[in-house]
């Protein structure tokens, strides 16, 4: 991966840089729903992590292997039984949370396998999304690029929803980074942020 590739990825996926900033050099990382392995490659290059991805899609498996990323073909929804308790420093679910069915069980599994969990997801409370709904339509945007009838996103939430979820499930949020495009959002994040990343651990 060249410096250009890294810069391009950072621009396309602002959450990558946010996630990388939380990960110390040489950490062990499990990336759930790792797609073509871009995040793991980015973390390999920028953080020298020891990483594995989990992915179900055939084409993505080939891409991961071609990208030199360790990948295990498996369905996240059937759990992480191949992975031992506490075997990773970080378990990441990047832009996948909203598409999981057994979300509660998966977060539990993340914190069984990893010391800490990291999720990033589109904020359904973002003002443009609210405006869309107010106008009477489901939002379609770069963060939510699907129509209501073909979306894989079955569990969309707002920042406040996710934080309530954490409180109710004995999960402590350690850090949060809210973004609008590549810009960090500090004011009224649940309204002005289009995506968010959270770092969290077990216990309150």
């Amino acid at each position: 991966m060249t410096q250009n590739d890294i810069a391009r990825l950072a621009a396309e996926r602002p959450d990558f840089a946010a996630i990388a900033a939380w990960i110390p050099k040489g950490a062990s990382v499990l990336d759930l729903g790792c797609g073509d392995g871009s995040l793991l490659r980015y973390l390999n290059e920028t953080r020298a992590v020891r990483g594995y991805g989990v992915e179900i899609n055939d084409l993505d498996i080939v891409s991961c292997i071609a990208n030199g990323v360790n990948v295990i073909q498996n369905d996240l929804e059937s759990g992480l039984s191949d992975f031992e308790d506490g075997s990773f420093d970080f378990v990441i679910l990047s832009q996948t949370l909203q598409a999981t069915r057994h979300t509660e069980a998966l977060i539990r599994e993340m914190l069984r396998v990893g010391r800490e969990g990291i999720v990033s997801f589109p904020n359904f409370g973002y003002w443009k999304n609210r405006l869309n709904v107010l106008r009477g339509n489901m939002p379609v945007s770069s963060e939510l690029p699907y129509q209501w009838f073909d979306t894989p996103n079955v569990h969309l939430c707002t920042l406040r929803d996710f934080e309530t979820f954490c409180r109710d499930h004995q999960v402590t949020v350690l850090e949060r980074r809210v973004m609008s495009g590549e810009r960090e959002v500090l004011l009224l994040p649940n309204l002005l942020g289009s995506t968010a990343a959270y770092r969290f651990q077990r216990g309150l």
Binding site: D58, E84, S87
Partner: peptide, 21 residues
């Protein structure tokens, strides 16, 4: 096959696993 993968993960080997339909 996953019984092969698990001890490799345990021992932190580089491993990829593909399940072909």
């Amino acid at each position: 096959a996953r019984e092969i993968v698990r001890p490799l993960l345990h021992n932190r080997r580089n491993v990829s696993y593909a399940e072909i339909t």
